[in-house]
């Protein structure tokens, strides 16, 4: 399988503190790739670097052979990358519909996209006029997903989507991710919950102190938790 997104030896820092040290990840087209690691390992920074929200000092990021590093941050999503940030980061003052419209505007998508997305998350349809900040936690997460899907991405970046959700919502989210995989969307998933990650991922990359460690097939981890214990400590 070919690489849909290639992160190649990137270095990133916040001020003087270097967070990522030559991090490399290869996301194959059509896979769900999970990034596992402890708090502060640099998982969120890796996603923000892909989105161009953190400056990449060296190394490069390419999508289907096109270099993303160096693009202004607002051009990155237009290449077809949907981003669900940590903590959802909805435009809380805006209505559900307006949040979706922002997503649609990114790549000039229209009503058909909206319909498809709402089919995946039917709860949102009844709440289009509601201010998004007043939704429940689960609905907010659905909306964050829906907003990212409104640009019909071929790559989806998910940052701890299960955070603070009840099990039924986690199951719904899992179904959505798998449905998207069937449509050929590649997903890079950052997770703290090992079980949630293992139930949906194809491959797992471990990341520690901003450096990448092993990348393995998920089948390997289901039987043998040694790696999980070493890098996540659960």
């Amino acid at each position: 399988m070919s690489a849909a997104l290639l992160v190649d030896g990137i270095n990133c820092s916040y001020g003087d503190v270097q967070v990522l040290h030559g991090l490399s990840i290869e996301i194959r087209s059509g896979e769900v790739h999970c990034l596992l690691g402890r708090n502060g390992a640099g998982k969120t920074t890796a996603l923000r670097a892909i989105m161009g929200l953190v400056r990449v000092r060296s190394g490069k990021i390419t999508k289907d052979g096109m270099e993303l590093t160096g693009l202004p941050a607002h051009e990155v999503p237009k290449t077809g990358i949907g981003y669900v940030p940590q903590g959802r980061r909805l435009f809380t003052e805006l209505t559900v519909l307006e949040n979706l419209q922002i997503g649609l505007m990114t790549r000039g998508k229209g009503q058909t996209t909206t319909d498809e997305v709402l089919q995946l998350f039917p709860v949102l349809r009844e709440r289009l006029k509601q201010r998004s900040g007043t939704l429940s936690g689960g609905e907010q997460q659905m909306l964050a997903m829906a907003r990212a899907l409104c640009l019909e991405p071929d790559i989806l970046l998910l940052d701890e989507p299960t955070e603070g959700l009840q099990p039924s919502m986690i199951a719904r989210l899992r179904e959505a991710i798998l449905a998207l995989r069937d449509r050929g969307v590649s997903t890079l998933l950052v997770e703290q919950r090992v079980d949630a990650a293992l139930s949906v991922a194809d491959r797992v990359s471990f990341i520690e102190n901003g450096r990448n460690r092993e990348t393995v097939d998920v089948a390997l981890l289901r039987d043998d938790r040694t790696l999980v214990h070493r890098y996540v400590g659960v």
Binding site: M51, P72, I102
Partner: peptide, 25 residues
């Protein structure tokens, strides 16, 4: 208007606005 929506989104969360193609600058 669309321009107003873009402004309100930027006001609400500039980083996320950029992640959705809004040229915050």
């Amino acid at each position: 208007t669309k321009a107003g929506l873009v402004m309100r989104a930027t006001q609400s969360d500039p980083d996320t606005a950029q992640a959705f193609g809004i040229p915050v600058d």
